[in-house]
């Protein structure tokens, strides 16, 4: 009973209580390696349901270096409404090297700074994964090999925490996209192909979001 009262209190403290439904919006972290299209996906979801964007997108890795949140994204599917907070996280990696930014016409000083911020961003993303996430949308670039240390480790952590996870095989618009390879890598989870950039197959993505995180 005490727990229930506590829960009710914590819910009433959140602004989400303004909405009719009595459940706190689930905080869904968008995770994945750098340049998988996490921000593009976050922006698409946010634009589709709230009209705003989450953050700038870029071809240069580690464009997102701080976790960005879009709160109270209401997704309607089959008469059902799902209320989620979207957290767009920095791409997780085990190595950050400023020299890879130099290829993108960046001065060394700026590249080093970006590198440091990206590193802090990864630490922050891992922190959020530990503390603040109720579910995960794991975004992979389907043109890349999904069998990486980072992917295996993150999926492992997510599984160990029993978080609901959706695996998205992004960039299906690109040549060399291999969805089967992604679903083979993580057969224990459902893999949904999409192009966040082109908006392909977003209906299925929303359907699964409603199903997994509703």
């Amino acid at each position: 009973m005490g727990l229930f009262a506590e829960l009710r209190d914590s819910i009433s403290r959140v602004s989400a209580s303004l909405f009719a439904d009595d459940s706190e919006p689930k905080r869904i972290g968008i995770y994945g390696p750098p340049n998988a299209g996490k921000t593009t996906l976050a922006n698409r979801i946010a634009r589709d349901w709230t009209g705003d964007a989450v953050g700038p997108e870029s071809h240069i890795p580690h464009e997102t270096r701080r976790a960005r949140r879009k709160e109270n994204v209401e997704i309607k599917r089959d008469g059902k409404t799902v209320n989620i907070d979207i957290v767009d996280t920095p791409g997780v990696t085990t190595k950050v090297d400023y020299s890879e930014f130099l290829e993108h016409d960046m001065e060394k000083d700026e590249a080093v700074r970006r590198s440091r911020e990206a590193t802090e961003g990864v630490a922050e993303a891992m922190h959020w994964l530990r503390e603040d996430v109720d579910g995960v949308i794991y975004v992979l670039d389907s043109t890349e090999d999904p069998f990486t240390q980072v992917n295996t480790m993150l999926i492992g952590i997510i599984e160990s925490r029993d978080l609901p996870v959706l695996i998205l095989a992004n960039k299906t618009d690109l040549e060399g996209s291999n969805i089967q390879r992604v679903s083979n890598a993580f057969p224990q989870h459902e893999t949904i192909p999409l192009s966040a950039l082109e908006g392909e197959n977003m209906d299925e993505v929303y359907e699964k979001i409603a199903e997994y995180f509703g």
Partner: peptide, 25 residues
């Protein structure tokens, strides 16, 4: 949890970052 190999070059220990409440540069 974070190793600075050289200025602008880092190696990250993801499990450490995840496991630890604090992180060390």
């Amino acid at each position: 949890s974070i190793r600075i190999v050289a200025p602008g070059q880092y190696e990250l220990n993801l499990m450490e970052l995840y496991d630890r409440q604090e992180y060390i540069i």
